[in-house]
């Protein structure tokens, strides 16, 4: 069964994705459960259109990009280990843009 998710970008991060803020996506079915760890490269390969190095650094998001999982700081949700559920809403906010 594919996994439907809502992915959002803001604070300037949307510029990496053709200036589109909200993406309703379906992750393909796979043997293991989808985690944020596997979601990030999927986003990089499927949603990010330019400069992927501004989105990911190593196996995680680039420092300076905040991540919210269902409106909560991902640091409270297990970060990369969080197991995604149907209709989860993941938000990426860049803090690196303008002040």
């Amino acid at each position: 069964m594919p996994l439907p998710l809502i992915i959002e970008f803001s604070g300037g991060a949307e510029l990496l994705c053709g200036n589109v803020k909200k993406h309703n996506v379906e992750l393909p079915e796979q043997k293991d459960k989808w985690q944020v760890r596997t979601l990030l490269p999927w986003i990089r390969d499927n949603l990010v259109q330019e400069r992927p190095e501004l989105f990911m650094q190593g196996d995680t998001v680039r420092p300076g990009i905040l991540v919210l999982i269902n409106e909560a700081d991902w640091e409270l949700m297990g970060e990369l280990d969080y197991e995604l559920e149907e209709n989860d809403r993941i938000v990426f906010i860049s803090t690196l843009h303008g002040g």
Partner: peptide
């Protein structure tokens, strides 16, 4: 940034 996000404050973020 979190404060602005949760309070839905209107800001501009283009470089």
């Amino acid at each position: 940034v979190m404060y602005a996000y949760f309070k839905k404050l209107d800001y501009f973020s283009t470089e």
